[in-house]
């Protein structure tokens, strides 16, 4: 890797990290696992003047049960997320989606917080964050604040993080009993980004769908919450021949998917409809044991 030169800082506390970042200027970037940032540096598509490496900041890594939610530290690696019993028990959708991220090597380095802060709509986790109404905790010299996922992803690679703010952790609300989950990822090779991904959560009772949450990956400049599907699915009969297919027909509503070498927008919209149906079916077939 032959990037342009930059200053490198490796703080060991969050206070120090916030200070260093504040002093490093507007062109400084936070480095966690590096699996999104380093390719940009390698291709000289980004020229940060400084990197603040939060990889060894104490207290940012790990998963804890906080009663009504699970707190995932920003520098927790994807692999740690997938293996966490707390995540698997209380937010299985996070585990399902994270397990599809790239390959094992990437999952051992890449971090949960990093992939949200990078705000790539083709990443698998932003759509999950939307679907589950996660809340992102950030720190700056001004103090702490919490940003709901719905207000976090502003544009392509652009989040609500202000200059000087560092993502410290993510609250994942526990959804309670009766829910089933699925992440349907459509990609051309195992390591490729999702052409389209669908994060689905379905709560049903006595064969009737009571509540649905759907987040879409790579269907616009930000991850997309498929609210039309969620409304259309409420109250329909579950199962192959129920109303989920009709609800899934709404999946492309309001999306503005990108064109690239792997798919044109009309194909992505078609995929969103087909995959949403499949995701809803799978989610309703794999209800969590808590039911």
């Amino acid at each position: 890797m032959i990037p342009a030169s930059f200053d490198y800082f490796r703080p060991s506390t969050i206070e120090e990290a916030v200070d260093v970042l504040a002093g490093a200027g507007e062109e400084a970037k936070v480095l966690a696992g590096g699996h999104s940032l380093l390719p940009l540096l390698r291709l000289r598509l980004a020229y940060p003047t400084a990197l603040v490496d939060v990889g060894r900041v104490a207290g940012l890594r790990g998963v804890s049960d906080r009663g009504d939610h699970v707190l995932i530290g920003a520098t927790t690696t994807h692999d740690e997320v997938v293996r966490s019993p707390i995540v698997r028990e209380h937010c299985p959708l996070v585990a399902l989606a994270t397990a599809t991220v790239a390959d094992p090597a990437v999952r051992h380095r890449g971090t949960f917080g990093g992939s949200l802060a990078h705000a790539d709509p083709a990443g698998d986790l932003p759509a999950v964050a939307l679907a589950l109404d996660m809340v992102l905790e950030v720190r700056s010299p001004a103090g702490e604040r919490a940003i709901p996922a719905a207000g976090f992803f502003l544009d392509y690679l652009e989040s609500a993080l202000a200059p000087g703010e560092i993502l410290t952790g993510v609250r994942v609300p526990k959804l309670g009993p009766g829910w089933g989950f699925h992440y349907e990822k459509f990609h051309r090779t195992a390591q490729a980004w999702a052409t389209v991904g669908v994060a689905a959560a379905v709560r049903q009772s006595n064969g009737t769908v009571e509540e649905v949450r759907v987040g879409l990956t790579n269907m616009g400049s930000t991850p997309v919450r498929a609210t039309a599907v969620e409304e259309a699915a409420r109250g329909v009969e579950a199962g192959q021949n129920g109303g989920l297919r009709r609800a899934a027909e709404q999946a492309a509503e309001g999306t503005d998917p990108p064109a690239d070498l792997h798919a044109q927008p009309d194909y992505r919209m078609h995929l969103a409809r087909v995959l949403t149906h499949r995701a809803l079916l799978s989610a309703s077939a794999h209800r969590s044991p808590a039911t």
């Binding site: 390719p39 291709l43 390959d103 051309r188 090779t189 195992a190 390591q191 490729a192 980004w193 070498l261």
Partner: peptide, 16 residues
């Protein structure tokens, strides 16, 4: 050339 990286020029791995 649009396929200048392995994200655009897809090579299968054993997983594929």
């Amino acid at each position: 050339l649009l396929t200048t990286t392995m994200a655009d020029y897809l090579l299968p791995s054993a997983a594929d």
